[in-house]
């Protein structure tokens, strides 16, 4: 059973921020609850108070503005994202990543912002958000909104820069580069449904004829990581594509730092990083 706690379901953001201000570290935000309630049942977390943000209208907002980008509120579920018009095309890599998370029933409840705030190294939505230059919009009672690039948001296993009095109000994903193609490759222990043993998100497009490739990974470092060094490789002039791909594979495998755990050994994960990176880039290049 769950440990005891007080429950609040504020209907406005300011009310929620007041509660956070009051309870500080003793409070936890609940949206989907699919991670939080499991941690509470396992007695890893014993918050004195849960603040349910699902009744706050502005946090339920998901909106795409042509030429600007996509705003995903803190209470927006993965289901909302998957069903939002045109996202499958426009933000393909994100859409694909979201589709691999948990199962359809969990996606009815689980939220993208929750996925980010939980800060698991295996967060499937994170690599896609990283290569799309997503930013977290963080708010507290006194200082208003600050915007943090997702790369700076994660600081360790299950750790973010978020202070106890702050809420991630929404994630903003800028308009992707024109004619880009993205893909998320997730290797699991089974065919059906699992946490990523390794996840790789890739995005490719042409900038005035030059091939641009972005890559980011889950489950191979303390946080989801984007390997920016790879991006330089494809800007080089004096290498063949195959050489560039191998160079990218080499760099990625050096930048990640997988551990061995019950889901996979470091050795196997490193192999998957190489294989998946190679396959992913080849597919991206074929398309763009």
């Amino acid at each position: 059973m769950l440990p005891k706690f007080e429950y609040y379901s504020p209907t406005s953001l300011s009310e929620a921020l007041d509660l956070l201000e009051k309870y500080g570290e003793d409070a936890k935000i609940i949206a989907g609850g699919t991670d939080l309630l499991v941690s509470m049942r396992d007695r890893i977390l014993k918050p004195k108070c849960l603040i349910d943000i699902k009744k706050i209208p502005e946090l339920r907002r998901i909106e795409y503005k042509e030429g600007v980008g996509l705003t995903i509120g803190a209470a927006v579920t993965f289901k909302d994202i998957l069903e939002y018009p045109n996202l499958e095309k426009k933000y393909r890599v994100l859409w694909e990543a979201v589709k691999t998370i948990g199962d359809m029933i969990l996606r009815n409840r689980a939220t993208l912002v929750g996925n980010i705030c939980n800060a698991s190294p295996a967060a499937d939505s994170a690599p896609a958000l990283l290569i799309l230059d997503a930013r977290a919009r963080i708010i507290n009672k006194n200082d208003g909104v600050r915007e943090v690039p997702l790369e700076r948001f994660f600081i360790g296993v299950k750790k973010t820069i978020l202070k106890p009095t702050e809420i991630v109000k929404e994630v903003f994903v800028p308009e992707p580069p024109a004619n880009c193609y993205g893909k998320y490759v997730k290797v699991m222990r089974v065919q059906s449904e699992d946490l990523a043993v390794v996840g790789v998100a890739g995005l490719a497009y042409r900038d005035r004829g030059d091939l641009i490739i972005r890559l980011a990974y889950s489950s191979v470092a303390p946080t989801p990581i984007r390997v920016k060094e790879v991006e330089e490789v494809f800007k080089k002039k004096n290498m063949s594509l195959d050489e560039k791909i191998e160079e990218a594979v080499k760099i990625s495998s050096e930048k990640v730092s997988p551990i061995s755990d019950v889901r996979g050994s470091a050795e196997y994960r490193l192999n998957l990083v190489k294989v998946a990176t190679r396959r992913l880039i080849k597919e991206l290049v074929e398309v763009v």
């Binding site: 429950y7 379901s9 609940i30 989907g32 609850g33 699919t34 309630l37 499991v38 849960l50 349910d52 699902k54 289901k79 359809m104 029933i105 969990l106 009815n108 409840r109």
Partner: peptide, 13 residues
């Protein structure tokens, strides 16, 4: 109208 895993939903919700 939507399927949920009821072990991960609070009764108060």
């Amino acid at each position: 109208g939507e399927p949920v895993k009821s072990c991960l939903v609070l009764a108060v919700e």
